[in-house]
Amino acid sequence: MSAPLYNKDILRLAANVPHHGRLPDPQASVEKRSPTCGSRVTADVRMEAGRLAEMGLDVKACALGQASAALMAAQAIGLTAAELADARDRLTAYLAGESDDLDFWPGLAVLAPARGYPARHASIRLGFEAIAEAARMADA
């Protein structure tokens, strides 16, 4: 493991993903998979009044994917589908080098060293992509 990519903070996050486990009766479920490394995140959601009320995650990913999913899950409850899609898009823009802003989501700075490793980007995006799509489907 490379020290700049895998540090204690990332490993701590990876080991403690909030909302871990599937929901018994979700309004929508989405599975996203990284073709590069095989990492996978499944998100189950329930929306109420246009906001994410409950979520369940099944995360089978590398430490970076798990850490990113943990950061997303810690802040997602209460957000709208549009806000979750915006966060997904902003993370994608950051990883692609199109933006330097990480202030849109608490804690993402811990993943900044991975920006220089494009092969890791798909795994980092999985949690954000799965929850945004599931929220959109449930809200439709």
Rank of each mutant, 00 (worst) to 15 (best):
A76G: 05
A76T: 04
E48C: 11
M55Q: 12
L79N: 03
M72Q: 10
M47S: 10
Q75W: 00
E54D: 15
G50I: 08
I77G: 11
C62A: 12
L79G: 01
L57K: 00
L64A: 08
C62I: 05
G56Q: 09
A76S: 13
A69W: 03
S68Y: 10
A61T: 04
D58Q: 15
A69M: 04
G65S: 08
A63Q: 10
Q75S: 08
A67K: 07
E48P: 02
L71N: 03
A67C: 11
R46K: 14
G65I: 02
A63P: 13
A49W: 08
Q75F: 01
A69K: 02
A53E: 14
L79Y: 00
L79M: 12
L64G: 04
G65C: 08
L71G: 02
E54T: 04
G50W: 13
D58I: 08
A74V: 01
A53C: 12
Q75G: 06
L64V: 04
A49R: 15
Q75D: 09
A49Y: 09
L71A: 06
G50R: 10
A49P: 07
V59H: 02
E54V: 04
V59Y: 00
A63N: 11
Q75E: 13
M72P: 00
K60P: 00
M55V: 10
D58A: 13
Q66M: 09
G78S: 14
V59D: 00
M55P: 09
E48I: 09
Q66C: 06
K60F: 10
E54P: 11
G65K: 01
A69E: 01
A76H: 02
C62K: 08
A53G: 09
K60A: 11
V59W: 02
A74P: 01
E48A: 15
R46A: 11
D58E: 15
D58S: 15
A76D: 00
A49Q: 15
A63M: 13
A73G: 09
I77W: 06
M55D: 07
G56P: 08
E54I: 03
G65V: 01
L57G: 01
R51V: 14
A67W: 08
C62L: 13
L64Q: 05
E54L: 07
Q75I: 01
E54Q: 14
I77H: 10
L52W: 09
M55L: 15
A76M: 03
M72K: 03
A70D: 05
A67Y: 07
A69P: 04
A61P: 06
A70L: 04
S68L: 11
G50E: 11
A53S: 15
A67H: 11
V59E: 00
D58C: 10
A49V: 11
A63Y: 04
C62V: 05
L64S: 08
A74L: 06
A74Q: 07
M72T: 07
R51S: 14
L64R: 07
L71V: 03
A74H: 05
I77V: 15
S68R: 07
